[in-house]
Amino acid sequence: MIGNDVVDLILAKKQSNWQRPRFLEKIFTKQEQAEINSAKDSGFLVWLFWSMKESAYKAHQRIENFSPRFNPWQLECSLEEGSVEKIRGRVRIGTSQFYTASTFADSCIFTSCTSEKDQQIIHQKVATKNIKEILLKSISEKEQILLKELHIIKNENQIPQLYQLENLLDIPFSISHHGDKSAFVLLNKKTAYL
């Protein structure tokens, strides 16, 4: 399964004071807090971990099909490798493990998440409010389905699902947005863009 998240760092800095008392304790594990507090750029690591948690939560919610209940301190992030431009990591949720790939561009962190290591996805990031239209057009072209037949409906647990007319399609995807930045990931069996 897949998930994604985007954090506009400029907007996050304006809207959220991560240095206020107890903020880190409410969201991050003790290990994550230690890494944040010792990092050269603590603010960047706060939002990187947040993005990793959000993307893993979305993938996990799709697997379990549970109602929304995001408890960020129950998700534990670890970094594996990378540079500031591309960082790989893992997120543990109970006994489940998710694999993340994050990129930094245009003052944003974009994170993609998969439930299987090296699972192949298409990752699209854009600065637009029309991300759903771009996603549907991409699916239409990839799957050879008429664009006008495709639509997204959230299920009873608020998980977006793809339909062709009245038929539910088994095409995993995830959409995210923050400020004027948007992104989607789409499962792709042929090419990886993680």
Rank of each mutant, 00 (worst) to 15 (best):
I122E: 10
E133S: 15
E133D: 15
A127N: 06
K132F: 03
I152M: 13
L162H: 01
K129Q: 10
L135P: 05
H151V: 05
K129S: 15
K142H: 08
S140H: 02
K129A: 08
I139Y: 06
Q144W: 05
K132I: 14
Q119V: 14
K148R: 14
E149S: 12
S138N: 12
N155C: 01
K142R: 04
E149H: 12
I153L: 13
Q158P: 00
I134L: 12
I121V: 15
L150V: 07
Q144D: 11
I122S: 13
N155S: 01
E133P: 04
I121Q: 07
K137W: 03
I153G: 02
L136D: 01
H151C: 14
K137D: 13
I122Y: 04
S138G: 07
L146R: 06
I131T: 15
L136T: 00
H123T: 10
N155I: 00
I153H: 14
E143P: 02
I159S: 03
A127K: 06
I121W: 05
E156Y: 03
K117S: 11
Q119P: 13
Q120S: 15
I139T: 09
Q144A: 12
T128A: 02
Q119G: 13
L150A: 04
S138E: 11
K137N: 13
K142T: 10
N157G: 00
V126E: 13
E141C: 04
Q144C: 09
Q120N: 12
L162P: 03
L150Q: 03
I121P: 06
Q158G: 09
Q124S: 09
Q144K: 13
I139M: 07
K132N: 09
Q119N: 11
N130I: 04
L147E: 10
I139P: 01
Q158K: 12
I159E: 02
I139W: 03
N157I: 00
E133T: 09
H123Y: 06
V126Q: 06
L146W: 02
I121C: 06
L135Q: 10
I139N: 03
I134W: 03
K154L: 04
D118P: 03
L136Y: 00
E133N: 15
N130E: 14
V126N: 13
N130W: 05
I122L: 11
K117T: 10
